[in-house]
């Protein structure tokens, strides 16, 4: 989606309105835009967030697209910039450029079943899609969310997951790789949930986000369950820097992931994902 930007290289100033700890190393920041109105976004798109004096990183929108005034980003502290972002207090300033990239194909999902498959932090870019699907619930068939994390402590958005699980019109399945805590749920990688989900392969559209290796196996499991490659969408992770397709870092074959992705249809990248270090 092309959004006209006055100066695409200069961040807008935003402030942290509130922060919320989702897991030991994961925080959700809600932003107030100071000098520019926050623009609408499509679920699946991302912003470039600047921790001033430290650097800039791509972070997906994790909030509700129906509330453009409440921009939310869920950040895991893994590097210098993301750690600096998670240390920001309420009222602190940060920089925002975006939104960038492609969104989940929700218009294509109308009238179909939708399965959202998330691995780890991959649930964050899927949450806006789920908000929108639930807001327009009557337009879709069966909805399910299959979510896998490393351990029980890494499960994000716990309170919402419980509320979603209580709904009759949404199936929520959660699994962990290792049950290190008291855990009475499913244990195993997220692909095992796909086999159990008994998807209607002709009607289902799959939206997948997680580590690349998890997405590859999830896409293969979906294929084994009868879904066509054209019905599977992945959100790719590459080293997005500029968001404009001009810095070259995020290439995967011919794709400039910041511009042609992050959300791509599986058949476009199936071969590329099988080549090591492409």
């Amino acid at each position: 989606m092309d959004t006209p930007l006055l100066d695409p290289l200069r961040p807008h100033i935003a402030r942290v309105r509130s922060t919320r700890r989702e897991a030991p190393d994961v925080w959700t920041l809600e932003l107030d835009a100071d000098q520019a109105p926050p623009c609408g976004f499509a679920p699946g798109q991302f912003n470039m967030l600047t921790a001033f004096g430290v650097g800039e990183v791509p972070i997906s929108f994790s909030g509700d697209p129906a509330e453009p005034g409440r921009v939310r980003h869920t950040v895991r502290a893994v590097g210098a910039v993301s750690s600096a972002l998670t240390r920001l207090d309420c009222g602190a300033v940060l920089g925002v450029r975006g939104p960038f990239g492609t969104g989940w194909p929700l218009p294509e999902a109308v009238g179909r079943d939708v399965v959202l498959i998330a691995g780890g932090l991959g649930i964050a870019p899927l949450r806006p899609a789920l908000y929108q699907l639930l807001a327009e619930r009557a337009r879709y068939g069966r909805l399910s969310l299959l979510y896998g994390t490393r351990g029980p402590r890494d499960i994000l958005f716990r309170r919402e997951l419980e509320a979603w699980r209580a709904r009759a019109d949404l199936t929520v399945e959660v699994t962990v790789d290792h049950a290190t805590h008291p855990w009475h749920g499913h244990v195993g990688v997220v692909t095992t949930l796909i086999e159990r989900a008994r998807l209607d392969s002709d009607r289902t559209l799959a939206l997948v986000c997680g580590p690349e290796v998890m997405m590859r196996f999830a896409a293969e499991a979906l294929g084994a369950a009868g879904l066509a490659a054209e019905a599977i969408f992945l959100s790719l992770e590459r080293n997005m820097h500029c968001g404009l397709g001009t810095c070259g870092h995020c290439q995967l074959g011919g794709l400039l992931v910041c511009r042609d992705g992050p959300v791509v249809r599986y058949d476009r990248v199936r071969d590329a994902l099988r080549i090591r270090e492409l």
Binding site: T50, F52, G53, V54, G55, C242, T246, C247, G248, H249
Partner: peptide, 23 residues
């Protein structure tokens, strides 16, 4: 044409800049 950016600040953290260089 590839480039990267580097953010820097002075010791006080008050003066901040972003530079772009060939990568």
């Amino acid at each position: 044409f590839c480039t990267t950016v580097e953010d820097t600040s002075d010791l006080s953290g008050r003066e901040i800049s972003r530079a772009r260089r060939w990568d």
